[in-house]
């Protein structure tokens, strides 16, 4: 396991078993300064992976190092001081106001920066005296992000932070994350089933399905490697079967997601989105 700090996140052999679901030897590596998107359908195990990494859920097996520290070891607290987390359900007590959250966090983090927190509240147009229970889903998420970004975090971990947000707020959130990630010391792990969000933001992509990581790759290589082939049924016959991830046939011809490194440069191969590739891999059974 890498604990020298070269990686913001280094997870190896992570296992967690529940009745009817298991995380199976999950490996994730996020070099410092990059943004990793963890993509998976609902129930794929993204939240369990994140919670297991953070020690919220007890692991059955596996090693986790965050910012070079063993998260469960003696220096785990030092690592947590430099990590900001936003969960799907933010977790702020309903009766508290944004002002209250600032007061609580000031006593939680050694490096809490009140000035930064309040400037983020203003930037995000968040009311300071309204109870959290009266916040909309978007406001809740934004408050969670403001809290996560106000103690000098070098690693942000966000679990489905953009799901359920309207497009305007989603764009706002993604912009904040982009700003954060511009600092080369700062890294982000963001999980989502909205692949288009991750496509805009991430340097690296990990696909997760049924508790397993199907692949982890840099986004550009992935987009370079796979494409969508539009051809006739006769034309498709010449395509090597091992290059085909998924196929959709209709009266108008064949549309297939193909591995261009195997299929070669063919006329009619267009760009595939991450969503196309992800869905194709799931259909293929996660063999790539």
């Amino acid at each position: 396991m890498n604990t020298n700090g070269e990686y913001a996140i280094s997870v190896h052999g992570l296992c967690k078993k529940y009745r009817g679901f298991a995380l199976d030897n999950v490996d994730i590596e996020l070099p410092r300064g990059l943004v990793l998107g963890l993509v998976g359908e609902n129930g794929a195990g993204k939240s369990t992976t994140i919670k297991s990494m953070l020690g919220v859920v007890n692991r059955d097996a596996g090693d986790v190092s965050l910012l070079g520290h063993d998260i469960d070891g003696a220096d785990g607290k030092a690592a947590r001081e430099r990590i900001g987390v936003v969960l799907d359900e933010v977790g702020i007590p309903a009766p508290l106001t944004a002002n209250d959250v600032g007061a609580v966090m000031a006593s939680t983090y050694t490096n809490w920066d009140s000035a930064k927190y309040f400037s983020l509240l203003d930037r995000l147009s968040l009311p300071r005296k309204k109870p959290f229970s009266k916040f909309s889903r978007g406001m809740k998420m934004k408050l969670g992000i403001a809290a996560a970004m106000s103690h000098g975090a070098e690693l942000l971990i966000l679990d489905e932070a953009t799901s359920g947000l309207d497009p305007v707020v989603r764009d706002e959130v993604l912009e904040m994350l982009r700003d954060f990630a511009r600092d080369e010391r700062c890294s982000v792990l963001i999980s989502s089933h909205i692949v288009s969000d991750l496509e805009k933001l991430c340097d690296l992509i990990a696909f997760m399905h049924c508790g397993r990581i199907l692949l982890q790759s840099d986004k550009d290589s992935l987009l370079d490697r796979y494409g969508i082939l539009h051809t006739s049924a006769a034309g498709f016959a010449s395509v090597p079967p091992e290059s085909v991830l998924s196929i959709r046939e209709s009266d108008y011809g064949v549309e297939a997601v193909v591995d261009k490194t195997i299929a070669g440069s063919r006329l009619g191969v267009g760009a595939a989105s991450l969503e196309d590739i992800f869905i194709a891999m799931i259909k293929k059974g996660g063999s790539k």
Partner: peptide
């Protein structure tokens, strides 16, 4: 009970606690 309803415990465990 309130902590559990609001998922505070989960969140708090991701901080320094």
């Amino acid at each position: 009970s309130l902590d559990e309803r609001d998922k505070w415990n989960t969140y708090a465990l991701t901080t320094t606690y």
